[in-house]
Amino acid sequence: MKRLLLATALTALSGAAFAQDVVRLGTEGAYPPFNFINDAGEVAGFEREVGDELCKRASLTCEWVTNEWDSIIPNLQSGNYDVIIAGMSITDERDEVIDFTQNYFPPAASAYVALAADADLKGIVAAQTSTIQAGYVAESGATLLEFATPDETIAAVRNGEAVAVFADKDFLAPIVAESNGELMFVGEPVQLGGGVGLGLRESDAELKEKLNAAIQSMKDDGSLNALIEKHFGPEAAKF
């Protein structure tokens, strides 16, 4: 019976339209201003605008999908979506398992945020799981406290679970600015990673070429810089 139902379901699904191929963009949806779910329940932010523009320039039909950060690479490899667009920094470790396009966000600084200026950065430091920041904290000699979502890393500092949080400076900046002086940047910013790129399966060379060309055209006509300035403010690093 189950098999019968399954077979019926498969036939129903395969009958559903044979239109143009769709490129599915996978994002986390919890990392403002890179990507977040806005109040209408849709993916929004810098990467939403960049992704839509890239798809337009590469003449692709794109659809947005959200996936938890933890399993974002396995689900790409399994084919549940075709592109990772989730503020993912280009690193050698990741490059071994997936492919990256050229960066669409320049190599940016990561920074510590704490409740007090004299916070001990060798103490307990919060970072999001499987990020370059988590790797950096682990090697810095501090005690790493990992969380599944970026928001929880901030909450951990606010409630005293961690002394500081280490994350992308561009993600932290609006949070610090709106905390009414409760949170502050501590220590020197650290340059990590090779910028943010789109993640693809290693076998998707054709799609990679198309997206690379689209990113290059956005860099060349300045529209990428305009979007960076719109979402990250005038001080953000640009191309």
Partner: peptide
């Protein structure tokens, strides 16, 4: 199953890549 990746032709995806979000 090629290395870490799983690749079948687009027609074999369930649901198909072009199916609406509802089907996914």
């Amino acid at each position: 199953w090629q290395g870490l990746e799983f690749r079948v032709c687009p027609e074999a995806k369930v649901p198909l890549g072009k199916s609406s979000a509802f089907w996914h």
